[in-house]
Simulated scan of single mutants.
Amino acid sequence: MSSLTEPYRGRVQAQGDDIQQKGGYSHSWAQQKPVTDQEGLSFLDTIEEQCTESQKAERKKAFRKARRFVKNASKQGGVGPESQPHSFCDPKCKVANARVDIEIRSGLTFVPVNQEK
């Protein structure tokens, strides 16, 4: 089955002019079961670990906001594409477009671990 037909798809990204890698750092998912809150937090950890110390510093508040979104989504039983958040950023950063994105393409996402099917 191709990733386009998987019912649960999305991506988390760290982007900005200070990241030279095309498309920034990202972690995508395409799977048969809902993404849990723990998986979502782990995905954010994965892309944060790819950042240099200065890139992490530029996105400290953005990562905190993204993690809060995942935790709040879990408290609601998960969210779908209709709850697509805007980019998470800190307007006081030196790099104006430094941000963290969560893209929910399809399916219920960030469900509590005990709700996973």
Results as ranks from 00 to 15, higher is better:
Arg9Asp: 04
Glu103Lys: 12
Leu108Trp: 04
Asn97Trp: 01
Asn97Ser: 12
Cys89Glu: 07
Arg64Val: 04
Lys117Gln: 10
Glu39Val: 01
Arg59Ile: 08
Tyr25Cys: 04
Lys33Thr: 15
Phe69Leu: 06
Glu49Met: 11
Trp29Glu: 06
Pro85Lys: 12
Gln15Thr: 14
Ser106Pro: 02
Lys22Asp: 13
Thr5Ile: 08
Arg105Thr: 13
Glu49Gln: 15
Asp101Cys: 11
Leu4Gly: 01
Cys89Phe: 13
Val79His: 00
Arg59Gln: 08
Cys93Glu: 09
Ala62Met: 03
Gln20Tyr: 13
Ser26Val: 02
Val100Met: 05
Ala73Cys: 01
Gly107Ser: 05
Cys93Ser: 15
Ser42Leu: 14
Asp90Ile: 03
Val100Phe: 08
Arg64Gly: 09
Glu6Ala: 13
Arg67Asn: 07
Asp90Val: 02
Ser54Cys: 01
Glu39Ala: 11
Gln15Pro: 00
Lys33Leu: 14
Leu4His: 11
Lys60Ile: 03
Val70Met: 02
Lys65Phe: 07
Leu108Asp: 01
Pro34Tyr: 07
Gly24Leu: 04
Gln50Leu: 10
Val12Met: 04
Ala98Gly: 10
Phe43Val: 09
Asn97Gly: 10
Glu39Cys: 01
Cys89Pro: 00
Ile19Arg: 07
Ile104Asp: 03
Leu44Cys: 13
Lys92Met: 09
Val79Gly: 01
Glu53Met: 11
Gln21His: 05
Pro85His: 10
Asp37Arg: 06
Arg105Ala: 08
Leu44Ser: 12
Phe88Thr: 03
Gln21Thr: 15
Thr109Ile: 05
Asp17Leu: 07
Cys51Phe: 02
Leu41Val: 14
Ala66Thr: 00
Thr36Tyr: 05
Arg68Ile: 01
Lys71Ala: 05
Glu82Pro: 03
Gly80Asn: 06
Pro91Gln: 09
Lys56Gly: 03
Ala73Glu: 00
Val12Thr: 04
Arg64Glu: 14
Phe43Lys: 11
Ser26Met: 07
Gln76Pro: 00
Cys51Ile: 03
Gln21Ile: 13
Trp29Gln: 05
Asp45Glu: 15
Ala98Lys: 02
Ser2Gly: 10
Gln13His: 06
Phe110Trp: 11
Thr36Val: 11
Phe63Gln: 02
Val35Met: 13
Thr52Val: 04
Glu6Cys: 04
Lys60Pro: 00
Val95Leu: 06
Val35Asp: 02
Lys61Tyr: 05
Phe63Val: 05
Ser54Arg: 14
Ser2Arg: 14
Asp101Asn: 15
Phe63Asn: 00
Arg99Gln: 15
Arg59Asn: 11
Ser74Phe: 00
Thr109Gln: 02
Gln84Ala: 04
Ile104Cys: 05
Asp90Met: 05
Lys61Asn: 13
Gly40Thr: 07
Asp101Ala: 08
Cys93Gly: 15
Leu108Val: 08
Leu108Ile: 10
